[in-house]
Nucleic acid binder design. Structure first.
Lengths: 197, 197
DNA sequence: GGGGACTTTGGACTACGGTTCCAAACTAAC
DNA sequence: GTTAGTTTGGAACCGTAGTCCAAAGTCCCC
């Protein structure tokens, strides 16, 4: 993949709508060209194919998740409080890029087979949350768990599955309100023995 | 879709491996024919195309989930205990049909666009769990939650995302051992106010 | 202001694979 | 033994992802 210029990158994000609506294979390269205003030949000049366009969009979303999560990690407070901030940050990205997020979730198989996407998912969410869980065990704000990484994956699953669910239902429910469902579930779930909040 | 005879149905399940490995589009109809031993023309006699083969397999898995969950629902005990049984039952299905489950998760987009699959997911998991949560609030074994349905979706997400994660990593970890990660997370997360287990 | 390197684009073309079609053989029922 | 349904190989059709190319445009350096 050639280095994608700023303007091209912006235009390409319009393809997220198509991918979210119809999936990668339901989307013709011509459609991408039409939706983004970038002619097919030009798309192929920059990308190896439509799968690479998809992964380009995914990368952008994952970068946004990564930044949001990182900022939340640096917020003040106990590990438990920061975990709650991370969940909110994650939900914010869904709210900000609903179509791209849906595309990411729906073409998960495609995505998961791309190594950079996999490492980016780890780096953006799983690693930070896993280490946060370890910190929580140390500072006493969270219960120690047997497998922090798997626990992080479970949290990721809970957040993203329900966010996608809400986006797909498309009742006007703001995704952010999910925090009222998820955060107590997770924080109580990881509440230190005997503790109460 | 014509009524699929028993033997054909059994053979077709072999296609799950392909779908899990390469996804629907990475799988050629010829490959399906080769893997199942059913010639292409015969496949087209019974199914409208490969997407219908996929959805046939998904339906089978979801039916298995539905049965397992229903059995768990009928087990004795408080709602909390039955919720724990439901999670185990769900994990059992992943352990029993790993490839088909992976295919289901990876080609989720395809699946989610098929109305029967969507209703089957609701019927097999979301509805029962949501009503279990309501029961738990009544029998006092679980905290009352604002939105039982969304909470059920979050639980579903936690279970399936981490199960897929374990299956994909393909370290010999048995999927069933996930119960030690998920069940405490969920049950503590839904523990009634002030209660301890 | 001319030349080289890179970018942009239209349009023709290729190749692959999903799907359709068909006709011959087979099976089962009555 | 006739009819209805099934099974299959093989050929054909067709849409579309991806390739190729050549003409034009842009940018920068001298």
């Amino acid at each position: 993949m050639r280095k994608v210029p700023e303007e091209m990158a912006t235009k390409m994000m319009a393809a997220a709508d198509l991918f979210a609506e119809r999936g990668l294979d339901g989307t013709k390269t011509e459609d991408i060209a039409a939706a983004t205003g970038v002619p097919k030949a030009t798309i192929y000049y920059y990308f190896e194919g439509k799968e690479e366009v998809l992964s380009f969009i995914f990368s952008a979303v994952l970068a946004a998740v990564g930044e949001a999560v990182e900022a939340a990690l640096r917020s003040p407070g106990t590990a438990a409080e920061r975990l709650s901030a991370v969940i909110d940050a994650h939900l914010h990205v869904f709210a900000l890029h609903p179509k791209a997020s849906q595309a990411l979730h729906f073409d998960l198989g495609r995505a998961a087979r791309l190594p950079e996407i996999r490492t980016q998912t780890n780096a953006a969410f799983i690693d930070p949350v896993a280490s946060l869980l370890a910190q929580g065990a140390r500072d006493g704000s969270l219960r120690a768990v047997g497998n922090p990484r798997l626990t992080a994956v479970a949290i990721l699953g809970a957040v993203s599955t329900s966010a996608i669910h809400v986006l797909a239902l498309d009742t006007g429910d703001p995704v952010l309100s999910l925090t009222r469902v998820i955060t107590p579930l997770v924080l109580n779930g990881l509440r230190p023995e005997g503790g109460n909040q």
